[in-house]
Amino acid sequence: MYKVREGYFSWILHKITGVSIVLFLLFHIWGMSRMSKGPEAFDAVIAAYKTPLFRAGEVLLLGAILFHAINGVRLILGEFTVWAMEKNKLLAWLAYALVGVLFLVGAYFMWRAEG
């Protein structure tokens, strides 16, 4: 069914980040429904989002989304083109490098931005 080789790490991390993002989506849409109920409710949610706990969560979310998105592109390329299928291992490492760099840069700017 699945190739349990070097792609296993990516495969399992794709599931873990995917489930994490769905949990965030539940939370995010719940927040949205509260925010749509007038300026006071809106401000209360925004104030909560600016606390260190939520900001740390946002940085984790950035990492999960970057991995899921970039690894997802790699998966799609591998499924639809022979070239990417043959270069799968190289592309996996390229994806890790890209995720790592974008995460470090993104996390730096997110954390530095005004709370």
Binding site: L25, L26, I29, W30, M32, S33, M35, S36
Partner: peptide
């Protein structure tokens, strides 16, 4: 969840 999301956007 989809309904809650759509209603939130439309009702804002």
């Amino acid at each position: 969840l989809w309904v809650i999301g759509i209603v939130s956007v439309i009702s804002f």
